[in-house]
Design a protein around this nucleic acid. Structure first.
Lengths: 341, 341
DNA sequence: AACTCGAATGCAAACGTTTGCATGTTGAAA
DNA sequence: TTTCAACATGCAAACGTTTGCATTCGAGTT
């Protein structure tokens, strides 16, 4: 059974296509009688306007595209939730593409989405892209009437609206917290420098240390390269018995949980021997024993803000060229057992 | 700057639209000279065919829609990953809608997607829909040329392809495992009966008990109603000191982790006092202490199969009416510390 | 009887493609 | 010189809508 079109209705009722269209829009220039007749017929056959035709006509898709590195990831799925909420409120739909942390796939996705499939784009950069430092595929976009909002993993080289977590301050406050509960030797488990969030969180960590008159020791900083075993790299930090940290800040939940597990296996107690605090307030932190203190990033809020920024940009009159904006989502310290001395 | 169209190229080069179209398709009936000229011009101005126009013309969107209850959920995000992989391999895109476990939103989403936005639909039913037992919004679909594949949360009332986890056998084997390690009093933490997976897992649990000659005791079965505190409902099971279970099967990771936490707080040791096994092999299970044994559901595989089934249905000649198929994804027992006596 | 007005409806273009068929041009064979 | 094939290109319809601008018709006004 084919979907019924406006044309079918017109033919069946012996009136013109335009009359049907107007009748369905309840325009007063069509006689009430005709309007009723058309509506009845349309309802009877479950007429639904073909959205492709509508989009082609109006040159609006009412869809926003999201390109993220990963979806099996608590933070990103929260962001999507936030985006979806805002988008749906304004009758927009969401189309999701995964880059799987690959530059090529990211580029492909963006190309795919910008050939008229979506009205705007929300992107969080893949690790490979950040490492390559190549953003040509995103720079062009502005020329093509496709607004772009970057979130979380962003780059200064791209001129557009952005939403980021206040990473520096989050890490700073987490480190301060460790200092306040009496930690003397605070280690950092982070990512390589090309990941912007890792770098920023490291900066906050260093700032807090310096401010309290402590040295930043390289032995206490692990930059995890995910090409190799995460576990082994973290273990190095905890196997150096001469120089064991008594506090750890990890830039994500997995690293924090991993560190905790290794520490416990070595017979250390948390938080007495080592206090641990992570980033990303997910389920792991809540359910681990002891429960993990974290810096909550409010992914949902971030998604909401990113979507709002994008929709504003999509619906702004072309004439008004608002300056690009960077929204900063502040973090919250979620203190749990792993730092309760 | 507007996107350049085939029309613009034609005008600029002083040839007809159809010639440009054919030249871009490298059709031999167009002279090599013209083909080269057109291609060069198109490349210069970064011509990209407007996908809306293509879709309207071809009556194919190359998009598949997914409606799931939740995205902040390890299992569902894995499913999506699997779907995305298969879809992308065949040049399809994925459009995701969240029902947030609401019947109305599910209905709305499906309506939205089936007005020509997608070529096919992948749906996992919301809790509210299952409770209401109303599937009219899905039954119509078959009439409208929109193939439908249900996954995980399905219903017998809907006649279509399905992909489900082998819940009965998974729960059966998990329960057998508890019996084998010596548990005498095995409890079940599950969902209300209208959630199909909960019901099936309960069936597997009961089957294993009966087979080994044990009675199924209602005191040992908790049906968690998420309208109320999950924690309190689980606590009831563990607060009845006269009748404490020594083994627990939970139908998901959260319930298992929650039960473990409560048990530990009561001073019970896992697995010695109580062995615990959950469903869904996610991060919580891996990182909890002790690590949780689980029934792994292979969400990614499920997504792959669902997408394959759907694409087959989309691309089948209308004449060949294949019978509907139900694929069963088998589970794996992942034994960890929480059941190692 | 001619004219104007308003209400109701229809025509056709537009959105950006693809494609069956027609048309035009050229060179060679008859 | 006519005829024909082969090649290159163009016209127009189609996909399903919306909408500016006719057109038609009857009634009321002069």
């Amino acid at each position: 059974m084919k979907n019924i079109t406006i044309k079918d209705i017109a033919k069946e009722l012996g009136i013109s296509i335009s009359t049907v269209s107007r009748a369905l829009q309840d325009k007063p220039e069509i006689s009430l009688e005709t309007r009723k007749k058309v509506r009845a017929f349309a309802d009877l056959y479950h007429y639904m306007p073909n959205s492709l035709a509508l989009r082609l006509r109006s040159q609006k898709t009412m869809i926003i595209g999201i390109v993220i590195p990963e979806i099996v990831h608590h933070f990103f799925s929260r962001v999507i939730s936030g985006v979806e909420k805002v988008a749906n409120e304004k009758d927009y739909n969401v189309m999701i593409c995964l880059s799987n942390e690959s530059y090529d796939k990211e580029k492909l996705n963006i190309k795919m989405l910008t050939n008229g499939s979506v009205d705007g784009l929300l992107v969080s950069l893949s690790k490979e892209t950040l490492k390559k430092n190549d953003y040509e595929h995103l720079k062009n976009l502005s020329n093509y009437n496709i607004p772009l909002v970057l979130f979380d993993r962003v780059s200064d080289e791209i001129n557009c609206d952005k939403v980021i977590v206040d990473d520096v301050s989050g890490a700073y406050r987490a480190t301060r917290h460790l200092i306040e509960i009496g930690c003397k030797k605070i280690a950092l488990i982070t990512t390589p420098d090309h990941i912007s969030v890792g770098k920023l969180r490291a900066a906050g960590y260093k700032k807090a240390l310096k401010e309290s008159g402590r040295a930043v020791e390289n032995d206490f900083i692990v930059k995890v390269d995910e090409q190799f075993s995460v576990e082994e790299q973290i273990a190095v930090l905890l196997n150096n018995d001469d120089k064991l940290p008594d506090g750890i800040l990890a830039v994500n939940e997995i690293y924090a949980a991993r560190a905790m597990k290794i520490a416990k296996e070595k017979g250390l107690t948390i938080p007495e021997d080592i206090a641990i605090i992570g980033f990303t307030d997910g389920l792991i932190s809540e359910f681990s024993t002891p429960s993990l203190s974290t810096v909550a990033q409010h992914g949902f809020t971030m998604g909401e803000h990113a979507a709002e920024l994008l929709l504003e940009r999509i619906n702004q009159a072309d004439s008004i060229e608002k300056n690009f904006e960077t929204k900063i989502i502040s973090t919250d310290l979620r203190i749990r057992k792993s730092t309760e001395k």
